[in-house]
């Protein structure tokens, strides 16, 4: 029974490996770390439970790679901030933009606080954009499902999400006097 989900994904992984590596190199700006993350992708797809049905297997792998790369970036940033906290104290970087990544004795509490701040920020967003954002980001709904359940096109879902992200980022950068 060779056509298992894992075999298919492994085959796609091997076919896409150079493209995945190229993406990770560009995303992480470092070949060595890219190789590490790629290795993590491989381990994850060979060792962990996979969803029973994966439409678009190559997209699945790229998103897995993208998520693992982000984990890597966040970990690196946290470590760097820990090491250089003193030097950043008065610089722009200590601004709210990276606040989430500053290490703290109670990371979970910080995450909760950030989430609450985000929720507050979302209150000033148009209801449709807020709903689309929450469905996709909080409930993990795919774009198609968001579109179907809200009775809008996938393109409109994308527009709502873009608007929501800009709204959130504007709040983060507010004290930096952009424009």
């Amino acid at each position: 029974m060779p056509n298992t989900q894992r075999d298919i994904l492994t085959a796609v992984y091997l076919e896409q490996r150079p493209a995945l590596l190229r993406f990770l190199c560009a995303r992480l700006r470092n070949t060595e770390r890219a190789e590490d993350v790629l290795q993590d992708v491989y381990l994850k797809l060979t060792r962990t439970n996979l969803p029973p049905i994966i439409d678009n297997p190559s997209g699945f792998l790229f998103r897995m790679a993208s998520n693992l790369a982000l984990d890597h970036i966040r970990k690196g940033k946290r470590a760097r901030l820990r090491d250089q906290a003193w030097s950043d104290l008065n610089s722009e970087k200590s601004g709210s933009q990276f606040r989430a990544d500053i290490p703290h004795a109670d990371d979970a509490l910080i995450a909760k606080e950030r989430l609450a701040a985000l929720n507050t920020r979302l209150q000033t967003l148009s209801p449709k954009a807020r709903e689309a954002f929450k469905r996709h980001k909080f409930e993990g709904q795919p774009y198609k499902q968001v579109a179907d359940e809200m009775g809008i096109s996938i393109g409109t879902v994308g527009k709502h999400l873009g608007k929501a992200i800009k709204h959130i980022m504007d709040a983060d950068l507010g004290d930096k006097n952009y424009g």
Binding site: P51, P52, I53, I54, D55, N56, G59, F60, R63, M64, N67, L70, I73, R74, K77, Q97, F98, A100, D101, A108, A111, K112, R114, L115, A117, L118, K137, F138, E139, G140, Q141, P142, K144, Q145, I165, I168, M169, D172
Partner: peptide
């Protein structure tokens, strides 16, 4: 962009992309 949304990553989105259909 990714880091500004990272508050959500921790509690809600720590799973694989929802590609299951």
């Amino acid at each position: 962009v990714e880091l500004s949304l990272s508050a959500i990553t921790a509690p809600a989105l720590d799973q694989e992309p929802a590609l299951v259909q």
